[in-house]
Design a protein around this nucleic acid. Structure first.
Length: 439
RNA sequence: GCGGGGAUAGCCGAGCGGUAAGGCGACGGCCUGCUAAGCCGUUUCCCUAUGGGAACGGGGGUUCGAUUCCCCCUCCCCGCGCCA
């Protein structure tokens, strides 16, 4: 949620942001109107309450003095009726105002590339040495802007679907039978590989000062709505029948909500959390995309970085979270590029977003594996997460970034590390925990 | 699931129909050569702000007036039951 004071004092900031996001500014105008109506009504209602409180005090005095307060009681009751009318109207307008206020997108950062959709996302960084099938060289050079080293590979890499099914490391058909499409059974060493990655990732973040968190995997509606815009997420979330509970789509949400309604001590900031959880997503809008395999699925495990920081530190921590993710993919020896997400593709909550896109040789594409967002105070204001500063209680800034989404990382390892015979080389850093060098 | 007891400010904690004590912590000031102690003030939210309004887990009710009485809900503690 944006700060209502921006709406009142400097609405041009919001009009400008909407313009850069290629979004309608109607919502801003509506919010301004509703807010000024609300304030006018509040004023009137408060004045009436002040009148009434005077009478109530008068009654108290009369009672104590042994006088008859009945005539004053009658006047107080009359005012009461008026207050009731105002309260009803006030509450109605307030609900409308808050609903619309929550829907106003976060202020897009001035540094983000301005474009109306993801075609404007800007690759800004390249790292690693990619394996590229001969036939894909031209496409790779274009996608990597010629800024990335590569080895031309003579054999045509298999898709992770073919390879994993053939090697009996996953079973998709049986998953489809028992649960539907976009579900999977992981089998054998692939399970161990997933656990090894997770273990490595958790130790990696713990060493960097993150507190490890396994959060609730279900949240009630109120918590969900604090962490994100519920109406925008409703198509994504699985609802538990008969309960006020939703399966989480990311541990970002329970971790953000963890500090809801709290006032943090400045000395305790930043608070850094590493969440581990399964993520459940309906993928409702993704018909036809990545229908095969485990790249886009209804359920996957994710390790997430989350930070509550002082406002002046959020840009630095945005860099740090991204840097952690870079270091991690470097350690796994997966080639990747970083993309600066365009204003039109940011989503409502983020002010600035960087994605890490791994190189997938079989798809001959860079695909998203990490999304690192600076949310500013947008989430903190909804959730009422503040800290005690000299100037008073201020909202913190929150940031979130994937470290790994296991299925996508597994696919990246499988595609990049496959050998011509269909075996998969285990990344060096995982060999100890896997107990083998090749799967 | 059943019975009993609870929920008050950042934390602890009194009040139990007349409008939120006190303590701790934090911040600001005074006093000190410095520190400590001591003293004074501030320390929930909202509003067109020398003022006013709201707020005692949440929601409703009774009343001129509710932290206090009544009803519903949530969560916590104790006991019983059930159970990985």
């Amino acid at each position: 949620m944006i700060d209502v004071n921006i709406l009142r004092k400097t609405p041009e900031i919001l009009f400008d942001s909407q313009k850069r996001r290629f979004q309608d500014d109607k919502i801003i105008k509506e919010a301004i109107k509703l807010d000024s109506d609300w304030r006018e009504l509040l004023r009137k209602s408060n004045d009436l309450k002040a009148d009434k409180n005077k009478l109530v005090r008068e009654i108290g005095e009369k009672v104590r003095a042994g006088e008859n307060p009945d005539s004053v009681k009658v006047r107080a009751s009359e005012i009461d009726k008026n207050i009731g009318d105002y309260e009803v109207k006030l509450r109605e307008i307030e609900t409308n105002r808050d609903d619309i206020l929550r829907k106003i997108p976060n202020i897009a950062d001035a540094g983000a590339p301005v474009a109306k959709d993801d075609s404007g996302n800007l690759p800004i960084y390249f790292e690693g040495r990619a394996k590229v099938f001969k036939g894909d060289l031209e496409s790779f050079v274009a996608q990597s802007r010629g800024k990335m080293e590569y080895d031309a590979s003579s054999f045509k890499p298999q898709s992770h679907v073919d390879l994993l099914v053939k090697r009996n490391l996953t079973n998709l058909e049986n998953a489809a039978t028992v649960s539907g499409s976009r579900f999977y059974y992981l089998l054998g060493d692939l399970v161990l590989l997933e656990l090894s990655i997770e273990h490595f990732a958790l130790k990696f973040l713990q060493k960097k000062g993150f507190t490890l968190v396994e959060p609730p995997f279900m949240l009630n509606k109120e918590a969900t709505n604090g962490a994100t815009d519920f109406t925008a997420f409703e198509d994504t979330l699985y609802k538990v029948e008969g309960e006020d509970l939703y399966l989480i789509a990311t541990s970002e949400h329970p971790i953000a909500a963890y500090q809801a309604n709290s006032i943090l001590e400045e000395t305790n900031l930043p608070l850094l959390y590493a969440g581990i959880s399964p993520c459940f997503r309906k993928e409702a809008g993704a018909h036809g995309k990545d229908t095969k395999g485990i790249f886009r699925v209804h359920q996957f495990n994710k390790i997430e970085q989350f930070a509550f920081v002082k406002p002046e530190d959020s840009k630095i921590y945005h860099e740090k979270l991204l840097e952690n993710a870079k270091e991690f993919y470097r350690a796994l020896e997966i080639p990747f590029r970083i993309v600066d997400i365009a204003t039109g593709d940011l989503g409502n909550v983020a002010s600035r977003k960087f994605d890490i896109e791994a190189w997938y040789p079989a798809q001959a594409q860079f695909r998203e594996v990490v999304s690192a967002s600076n949310v500013l105070d947008y989430q903190a204001r909804r959730l009422k997460v503040r800290y005690r500063a000299k100037e008073g209680n201020l909202f913190v800034h929150t940031l979130n970034s994937t470290l790994i989404a296991t299925t996508r990382t597994l696919v990246a390892i499988v595609e990049n590390n496959q050998q011509e015979d269909g075996t998969i080389v285990v990344p060096k850093v995982l060999r100890d925990s896997m107990g083998k060098e090749v799967i």
